[in-house]
Design a protein around this nucleic acid. Structure first.
Lengths: 198, 198, 198, 198
DNA sequence: TATGAATGAGCGTTCATTCAT
DNA sequence: AATGAATGAACGCTCATTCAT
């Protein structure tokens, strides 16, 4: 039913797993995790629900696999950051690269941002939290002034939320990204001065 | 409270409606809207599901009613703000009062923050968005520099998310609130200077 | 769909729970627990699957409730037996009463007999085992000769299985029951003599 | 058994078929037929489900093949018994050999015992029943007293169930087997006397 | 002001089976 | 001799909602 002779059926062998991830992320980001049913995903792909279970053990596993695949650059970034001196320059560089990494996986992070309640009780909740704490440890002096701690958190939040929230503002995405990055860098810089330079 | 003879006659005896709202908000905030079933709410209150339908037409209506009741101070704040001159002092005052209002309805705003995907397709999604745009119009010059626009949005986000995110940080809530407020005020102030004084 | 105006619909209010148990037991006994789906039970009763869940929390709970209701006489019998002297007369009386109790809940015990593998991992598995050990402790001297122990177990098994297995033998059920009882009594008596009388 | 050059050439290399039967029986006996999925069997063997279908046409066929292979000694025993005079000595000899045969295929008979409801609607249900009737015809005079008929059936049941049921009793298996055999022989002997000797 | 009883739709998941390779 | 990929049917279960009482 659908695509019987035009090769669309044949050609999709071997990449079904990837296609499931793509469609799933799109729907998860658009409608949320809970409101997206496996039936819906399967229909979009013109396969049966059971086919999804050939490739993934559970619904949650689909999400986990997406998260692992797409957030790998971020994990590597954190790993890299951990080994640098905690200087202002490092922090600024981290923020800059983080902004790029986020842009590369925008739908995933939009999803994370908008489904926090759901995620909290899923495996990726813990994964994400761990990553964030890793980032925080790099960007922030644990003995810093409370206000400066807030600035750091605020910088991260600004980057996470910034893009999707400015959707109704015109001007192209790259410009927006740079604006968001500038604000975040400011916050990080101020926080660093506050605790470091006195 | 205990209005025995005052004008609040209607809401006097039979506080079930209120209790439903209280429990619902607690559960919504804790587990998310979708994962909280009416059965669960009813069980917490030791009534039947059908009883909920005596007081509210739908599940969504419970949420709407909570939102309307708890976010009234914010609506009034915006109304007030609209009539003030768009000076820096006004903006700072708005932010200050907003911080207080948020604290007064913390679970609701934690819920809003963590259930954005869900809320988007609910009535309160539109309501909330309208409120936020109202706030933005007060805090922000529409012709402002993109970076300053981001600062404004960032200030709001910082306040919305700030409290729940700093949960693992020690120090008492009121101190945290003040720290968050300071960062937000900074951002608003910078944004104002940028577009106004530049 | 079925019985719109003839009162069959109205009359069944209030006894649905019982009707579920009746139909479920019939089907469980006929086809086995696993092969009997809730859909099937519901269809027999002309209600929806969801209706079953109003009355019982899970499929297993339906079975447990049947077991508890129908095996109560047996529990009481064991309770009574525990307080008697462990004389031959008591044992024979127990066996006699047990035979009657089994007949009163024949479909349930046919089910238990034929679904042991299934039952083993269900709650009633443990319940049943406990009951049986209770019975055994009354009928059997723990220090008895191994052969006499087998006789006791054999007596119980004979009663459990006897009735259903003789289905293709003609002659009326009550006669069969008495024949089975006689064999069981013989076994118990021999066992008692063996260990007691030397 | 390293049959390098003897007549068992066919079954030599590629013992997968055998391994499937072994694992399947183990799982069927442990968890029941319905609760054991082909996926599970395949995983145990570290092959795919499809591989099972290379060796057997259906799930049921796996079971049938196990039954046929393992119960062949019993079929032969019955065949032998049919040609003997129906004397007491023959009956006792049958019972004795049957006990040995059961021990040689204990897991299969434990399975048969515990999955009667399932088996009834499978091909081996009929097969098993036929065998049992064959045995009964040898052990039992069709005109015998009802009580003696019960004794015969009871003897068979005792042997089928005896071993697995005494699992919590200590003492070694061979001793148990002998005890069970003794009880069964007693029953058969009594039955023979009853109908034969008047 | 509530309850008891039920429904219809849907969910995530599992199963035995098939078939081209 | 076996795999990779998929299917169709069914399953147990939960949900928001309804309505007579």
């Amino acid at each position: 039913m659908g695509g019987t002779m035009d090769g669309t059926r044949k050609r999709r062998r071997g990449n079904t797993r990837q296609r499931i991830q793509d469609v799933a992320l799109e729907l998860f980001a658009e409608q949320g995790y809970e409101k997206t049913s496996l039936r819906e995903i399967a229909e979009c792909l013109d396969v049966t629900k059971a086919a999804l279970y050939y490739h993934f053990k559970t619904k949650e596993e689909i999400l986990v696999s997406i998260f692992e695949d797409l957030s790998r650059p971020i994990e590597e970034l954190i790993e890299w950051g951990r080994q640098q001196p905690h200087s202002l320059e490092t922090k600024q560089e981290i923020i800059r690269r983080y902004s790029e990494a986020l842009t590369g996986a925008a739908p995933l992070f939009r999803f994370m941002q908008e489904n926090q309640a759901t995620i909290r009780e899923l495996r990726i909740g813990e994964m994400f939290k761990t990553r964030m704490l890793g980032l925080r440890d790099i960007l922030m002096d644990p003995d810093a002034d409370l206000v400066d701690q807030v600035r750091c958190v605020s910088a991260l939040f600004t980057m996470h939320a910034g893009m999707h929230v400015l959707q109704d503002v015109e001007s192209d995405p790259e410009e927006k990204r740079k604006a968001v990055l500038e604000v975040a860098t400011d916050l990080i810089t101020q926080a660093h001065r506050g605790s470091g330079g006195g």
